Computed example of a mutant assay.
Amino acid sequence: MDVKSLYTLIAAADCGSFAEASTQLGLSLSAVSLQLRALEDEIGITLFDRRSRPPQLTEEGRDFVSRAREVIAHWEALSESLSRDPARGVLRVGAVHTAVASSVPAALRRLQSERPEVSVRLTTGLSHDLEERLRRRTLDCAIVTEAAPGDSDLISHRVCSEPLVLIAHRDIKGRDVTKILASEPYVRFSRQARVARLIDGELQRRKIAVNSRMEIDTLEAVVSLVRQRLGVSIVPAASAGSGFPEDIRVRSFGSPPVLRHLAVSLRGDCPKRHLVAPLIEALRGVYADVAAA
């Protein structure tokens, strides 16, 4: 039994199909199927019921996957501890789209400059999806909208707080945020995004009814729709990015401002904590530079 087969098994279990696992692992579908069949022959257990489509884990298979995760966790920790140069390695990072649109590129440039021996594999997604990938050990850390206290079993390191702002095309008249939201079409962040729930909660608290026409999950797309005069929106201020285009008007949303907290989350037993730490410092440094500018 080799470690690669265990990684393949865990990917197939997490993805729910051999085809998706092959895409995630960069292998052919036949290679995944052959690896899993060979593993079953070696351990004498039927891991998947191949009569269903896609194949489903058997009860024995689910038990074995749980043990395989433990083996992989110990193997990764041992591999890191025996590394000749513990500063080197590949860091698998997840990030919400809004962070990639603002702080993450500058932080990665800083990390690359200060720690050129560290390679980064970046994945984007929604906060809850990235946190689930942390639990499945397919990510080492994730830059997410911070969960409410007690809502997560993961370790969280806050890196910044971004105020929510109203954005509208410069042709939209008026300064009253409430009136603008009530009178203009509203471009909404995907309801599955944690930041969207924060925004919706504040709208409900202030009893502001919006006419939601469109729903989308990236900051760039929201800004693009607003620039095309398709509506107004509430978004986290891109404080560490290049700011909003000149034809976008920005108004504070709330007094005091409503804040979206960004944090780096990781498992308590993450074997690459020593690589996550400089990323956290790079992110905090980027925001500190912006605040001081």
Score class of each variant (00 low, 15 high):
L6G: 05
L9I: 07
I10S: 02
C15H: 10
C15Y: 01
S17Y: 07
A19G: 09
G26M: 03
L27D: 04
S28W: 03
L29G: 15
V32H: 04
V32D: 02
S33N: 14
A38T: 09
L39C: 02
T46K: 11
T46V: 13
S52A: 13
S52W: 02
R53D: 12
P54T: 10
E59S: 14
E59T: 14
E60W: 04
F64S: 01
V71L: 10
V71E: 12
I72K: 01
W75V: 08
W75M: 07
A77M: 00
L78K: 07
L78V: 01
D85W: 00
A87K: 12
R88V: 09
V90G: 01
L91A: 06
G94N: 08
V96P: 10
V96T: 15
V96R: 10
A99M: 11
V100K: 10
S102V: 01
A106S: 13
L108H: 07
R110T: 12
L111N: 03
S113H: 14
S119R: 15
R121E: 10
H128G: 05
E131I: 08
L134W: 02
A142I: 06
I143D: 04
I143A: 06
I143G: 04
T145N: 13
G150Y: 04
S152N: 05
I155L: 12
R158F: 00
V159T: 14
S161P: 02
V165C: 15
L166R: 09
I167N: 03
I172S: 03
K173F: 09
T178Y: 02
L181W: 02
Y186S: 06
R188P: 01
V195F: 04
V195M: 11
R197L: 10
D200A: 11
E202I: 06
R205I: 00
R206H: 00
K207D: 13
I208V: 15
S212T: 15
R213W: 02
M214H: 12
E220A: 15
A221T: 14
S224C: 08
Q228A: 14
V232S: 00
V232Y: 06
G241K: 07
S242R: 14
S242L: 13
G243H: 03
F244A: 11
E246N: 08
R249W: 00
R251M: 15
P257S: 03
V264R: 07
V264C: 08
G268R: 12
R273W: 00
R273H: 00
P278M: 10
L279A: 05
G285M: 03
G285L: 08
A288T: 08
A291H: 01
A293H: 09
